[in-house]
Amino acid sequence: MSKNAGVRTLILLRHGQTEWNAVDRMQGQIDTDLTELGRRQAKEAARELVSRNAIALIASDLKRAHDTALALSEHAEIPVVLDPRLRETSLGDWEGLTHLEVDSDYPGARVAWRLDAHYRPPNGESKLEVGARALPLVRELFAERQDWPGRTIILVAHGGLIAALTAALLDLPPQNWPALGGLANTSWVQLSSHGPGIDQPGWRLDVWNAAAKVAPDVL
């Protein structure tokens, strides 16, 4: 028996590039489209991840994540299941603004947001709230997918959501959440659960910000 026979592997993949990513515009839950580069990135990531023995593919219902997941689905021949709990952080009044506009209108706020998991953009969500929104999905998969041990589940989502969910799964203290930095487009995170069950999952962070490297795309 493989030494990993009982290990549940979870891959969290960020969507491909959008036009708004390219110009540093805050997307949040606004539904934007992939660029041509973003679609190429999705196909490259799919070729890289198809060998991961995946049994399920679940995506945010925002188009940029759904379309990225469809590229994986074509390679892995697994249907895409959409789940709105995987949507990006709601950025409230910041959505649609560029980074420079946010810095001009709300001096110091983006720095505070990056460094404080409790910080909530005006009419938006804190990182802690985003983690709490997504965590039940993984707990449900733990309970329902008896075929998960020894295999992989892939979630396709957004940079802020992935960082928050990772911190929540690892049960990091809120002051340590900023240790998980930004993710490039179609980069992924890999976690593995080595614990005895849902109440003691024993999550480990195996990989952070891995990429198939189609093109320079650094945040």
Rank of each mutant, 00 (worst) to 15 (best):
S73M: 03
L49P: 08
D24K: 15
S73L: 01
A69Y: 00
A59Q: 02
A22I: 12
D83A: 00
L37K: 08
A22D: 11
V80T: 06
N53Q: 15
D67T: 06
Q41C: 03
L62R: 12
S60D: 08
Q27D: 13
A22M: 13
K43D: 12
A65W: 03
L82V: 10
V81E: 15
I30R: 14
D61W: 05
I30C: 09
N21G: 12
R52P: 02
M26K: 08
T68S: 11
G28A: 07
P84L: 03
L37D: 13
D61H: 06
D61L: 11
Q29L: 05
A42Q: 00
I55F: 11
D33G: 10
A54G: 10
A59T: 04
S73K: 00
L70A: 12
T32D: 10
V23G: 04
E36Q: 12
R85E: 04
A45M: 02
M26H: 10
D31A: 15
S51M: 07
K63M: 14
S73A: 14
D33H: 13
V81C: 05
D83K: 00
H75Q: 12
E48Q: 14
G28N: 06
A69H: 02
D33N: 11
S51C: 06
M26R: 05
A69N: 02
A46E: 00
H75F: 03
Q29S: 07
T32K: 08
H66L: 09
R25G: 09
V50L: 03
V50I: 06
N21D: 12
D33Q: 15
E74Y: 05
E77D: 12
T35D: 07
S51L: 10
N53H: 10
L49N: 08
T35F: 07
E48L: 12
L49Y: 10
L37P: 03
L34G: 09
A56Q: 10
A59K: 03
D67H: 14
L72R: 00
A46V: 00
L49W: 07
Q29C: 08
E77N: 15
T68E: 02
H66G: 03
I55V: 12
R52L: 08
L70N: 09
E44R: 04
V80C: 07
A54T: 06
E48P: 03
Q41R: 00
L57M: 04
H66I: 02
L49K: 08
R52K: 15
G38Y: 04
K63G: 11
T68W: 01
L57R: 00
P84R: 08
A54R: 02
L82R: 07
G38N: 04
E36W: 04
E44A: 13
I55H: 14
A76F: 08
D33T: 11
N53M: 02
R52Q: 15
H66P: 00
A71S: 11
V50F: 02
R40K: 14
R64W: 10
D24F: 14
H66Q: 11
